[in-house]
Amino acid sequence: MAKFLEGDHLINEQQTLAPHEALELHEMLNFKTLCLSKSKLMQGLVFDQELKDLMQKDVQQSLQAIADLQAIYGHAPFQAPVPEFRPTPILN
């Protein structure tokens, strides 16, 4: 595991994120998720093929971006095992 000094702190690849860093990733991940759903769904509404292709490019880039953000968000101090379904019950 690569280790290097930055200031007085020893940093390695698996270090837990600082709380404020984790919050930035929370915001980035949710923003990317919303953008992905919009770029995916709007492709069903647009008429222009070039615009649709550009949205599909955004979908592909967003999939990679979300995977990268998820991997780093996994080092949040409040990370927890992810259940298959939402943890709070859905009642009417």
């Binding site: 994120l17 980035m28 923003f31 080092h75």
Partner: peptide, 19 residues
């Protein structure tokens, strides 16, 4: 545009080299 701004703002709040 919003994504560029959000990402730039997040970058300036982050120290972790991986992030």
């Amino acid at each position: 545009k919003e994504g560029v701004r959000n990402t730039a703002a997040a970058l300036t709040e982050t120290a972790s080299p991986q992030a």
